[in-house]
């Protein structure tokens, strides 16, 4: 310890102190600062480049997934449209069928009624014809019959009988 204190040189201490502190300050300004900053920037650059590459990869993956989804959706939509079209077709056909059936029924009904009417009118006409004919016949018969008294009474009675029966 004694030797250490004896060896201690104030001049060297002062020079060393001044030179070293100066060296630290100068190097800080001209060397360490720029060097550490450059290295730091480089590291940050590498880090961000890696991150953006990762991002791009993820984006690409997303895009591919989106594409697949899009195709899937398109396919589903097409299927749905086809199904709709089929349904519409079937519905239209069945509706048309129903309508036709109804129309036919209606027409048949109409035909039936008109036939009935025709029949009624034909019957009426026939009845009239028959009536007229029978009157004509009756006239002829009556003309002939009424030539005798007895015959006339017989006729009336017979007619009256017929009437009640009708």
């Amino acid at each position: 310890m004694d030797k250490l204190i004896n060896d201690f040189s104030l001049g060297l201490f002062v020079w060393m102190g001044v030179l070293f502190v100066l060296l630290v300050l100068l190097l800080k300004k001209f060397a360490w600062g720029p060097i550490l900053e450059a290295v730091n920037n480089r590291e940050e650059g590498i880090k961000s480049a890696l991150a953006s590459a990762e991002e791009a990869k993820k984006e690409l993956q997303n895009l591919t997934a989106d594409n697949a989804n899009l195709i899937k959706e398109a396919r589903a939509e097409r299927d749905a449209m086809l199904k709709d079209a089929r349904e519409i077709k079937e519905k239209m056909i069945s509706e048309a069928k129903d309508e036709a059936k109804e129309e036919a029924t209606k027409m048949i009904e109409l035909a039936k009624t008109s036939i009935e009417q025709e029949k009624q009118s034909a019957l009426a006409h026939l009845k009239k014809e028959v009536g007229e004919l029978s009157i004509t016949i009756a006239q002829a018969v009556v003309k002939k019959e009424l030539s005798s008294q007895e015959e006339q009474i017989k006729l009336v009675e017979g007619m009256l009988k017929d009437v009640t029966l009708n």
């Binding site: 100068l26 190097l27 001209f30 060397a31 360490w32 600062g33 720029p34 060097i35």
Partner: peptide
């Protein structure tokens, strides 16, 4: 040290390596 590290720092200005 001053010249050596100053030169080194200068290199970084143009080149990241």
């Amino acid at each position: 040290m001053f010249f050596m590290f100053k030169k080194m720092a200068k290199n970084y200005k143009n080149n990241p390596l």
